[in-house]
Design a protein around this nucleic acid. Structure first.
Lengths: 341, 341
DNA sequence: TTGTAAGCGTTATCAA
DNA sequence: TTGATAACGCTTACAA
């Protein structure tokens, strides 16, 4: 019998020996105390404390083919939108036995597919993925994941498993209709990145303007570059150079809206009198801006929270009756689109 | 012999059987191809592809007492500062065999300690932690971690292992001196959260004003609340209510600076003529603002990148000669503090 | 309620 | 260069 490393850390066998019981009893006491007599349980607890024992997750995973890892895949770390979602996820997970494993797909479906493969090979307890636009193979991987899957941030007709989000198209429609109702008539669209959710907001914009008979595709200004405040400034400048009579812009997100506001200040264009500005997501700064910026408040934190809740419920055997939860959104109409104020 | 689950996934034994070799040879071919003959290697590669074999990380970790996980602990997910650091980390890790495990301590040293315990129990390949202000026990855990440890975002005299950051005190000093040089004389400080790094920036502010014989503690306005744009607005309002003759503010971070700018616009206070505004970190929006906001550019992305590089080098046996890397910072003087423009 | 034995999928050790 | 075997630390299956 040649011994190997025996790294030093106490094992379940050490605890068992000290408590005078078998290893399986320790295992049970740790995972399901109710199945062990009070007496033994106390001895075991003492031994665990005395030895400072911490179970080895890898051994556990290997033996049980299960982990306590909830895999999360999002497309961006920089985008504030996901920061809030992550906070919701981390806050909910913190009070649970689960751990988060976070992947950043950088808005690349291919990278998402790769991460999915890596994550699944680790037998996660559950998976939370942003968006509903996986590649075919990515979707196949999710379908056969063998664990609860929650798609977040968006809605679609055919969830892989569960889904919590809101309609981006409806959001884009609402804010655009608001601009129309506020009296604006030559309404532009500023968009960056142009990922699927952005596209849907653009669809909403288009539908609202067609409804109002105000649609003019020349007022749509987009770029594949990633969103930023300075990009908002540049896009508005471009739009106004091409279509100087534009009297409002729906900015695909709040960073762009802020940049557009700065550009108006720079160009001495009165907001909201000469030009109206609306964003999307309602990040904290929107209300603090001067003038305060109109936006669509999206349930970011809550999506993260609910996703974890749904996953945990499924893990506990309580599949929700509705697989899809529409959390909606809310128009926050502020000074930047109030012509009468 | 009662068989258990045999979940379905191919194992190294399946690959070995198909390739007509032993499992250990497959193991070697996968980890260190040079140690296996070309012929067998090809057979094994074929079998791996044919079976779509993916090694089980948990079995690997159990058998080798090693993982490919780099643990990262940061205090906030919402703060943009960390988003950039994380991007640097994820980008560097993406082109490596390592994976990130991310922990959010929420600015709580106790929570950090807890996370450290959890992470270490999983035998990470390396650990990256934000800040140098761990609890005593946290520091002890890091010291005996048995893996490379990189502290980031700050500097101190006694790194646990390796360190990459910059001096927050020097940064606070520089930007404050810049305000003095720009002609401001009654310079306030706006601070939120007041974590250790914020405290050091405040120290730099204080030292610079004492040097210039302009220090007045009544101009320091702080709150333990977490930083936000609206908080910047509120803090400046408070400060001006108490000390109306304040002619400049150093805002502990860029969110506050943006809020302060909005408050000035709201109160029709000319920036930079009546009041100068400077921030810290130089987030992307600072340059786009109107007027463009002065800030200290901090090497956030690079800190993340370098931390992973240092960890990987150490893992490869190449300990760097210098354990501490000072990445410095840069003053970005802009319109918000240019009285003469 | 508790225990025994086998097995999870991989790698370290030692031998050839 | 290759392989046989034990071991990693835990849990499942079955038995008492």
């Amino acid at each position: 019998m040649r011994t190997r490393r025996k790294g030093g850390r106490p094992t379940i066998a050490d605890v068992a020996a000290r408590a005078g019981v078998s290893t399986i009893t320790v295992s049970r006491a740790l995972r399901d105390p109710a199945r062990v007599s009070l007496e033994l349980r106390e001895q075991i607890d003492d031994a665990v404390r005395a030895l400072d024992y911490v179970p080895d997750q890898h051994a556990r995973a290997l033996a049980s083919a299960r982990t306590n890892i909830i895999g999360v895949i999002i497309p961006s770390l920089t985008n504030n939108v996901f920061a809030d979602v992550l906070r919701g996820i981390y806050d909910s997970v913190a009070e649970s036995p689960y751990q988060v494993q976070l992947g950043n797909s950088r808005y690349s479906p291919i990278e998402e597919e790769r991460l999915l493969g890596i994550f699944l090979s680790q037998r996660p307890a559950a998976l939370i993925v942003a968006g509903v636009d996986q590649t075919e193979r990515g979707r196949a991987l999710l379908t056969s994941a063998g664990c609860p899957v929650v798609q977040i941030m968006d809605l679609s007709e055919d969830p892989v498993d569960m889904m919590v989000g809101f309609s981006h198209k409806a959001g884009g429609h609402l804010v655009t209709s608001h601009l129309v109702a506020a009296g604006y008539r030559r309404i532009g669209f500023l968009g960056a990145r142009m990922d699927p959710r952005t596209q849907r907001r653009l669809e909403g914009y288009r539908a609202a303007l067609i409804d109002a008979d105000l649609y003019d595709p020349r007022r749509i200004t987009t770029t594949p570059a990633s969103s930023s405040v300075s990009l908002g400034r540049d896009l508005l400048r471009d739009l106004l150079a091409r279509m100087p009579d534009t009297d409002a812009v729906f900015c695909n997100n709040d960073d762009l809206a802020l940049g557009a506001l700065f550009e108006c200040q720079r160009a001495a264009l009165a907001v909201p009198a000469s030009i109206g500005i609306a964003g999307f997501n309602d990040l904290e700064m929107m209300e603090a801006a001067y003038p305060a910026l109109t936006s669509i408040r999206t349930p970011r934190y809550e999506m993260g929270q609910r996703a974890v809740q749904m996953a945990r419920a499924a893990l506990a055997g309580q599949r929700p009756e509705r697989r899809t939860i529409d959390l909606g959104f809310e128009l926050k109409a502020r000074a930047s689109t109030s012509r009468n104020d």
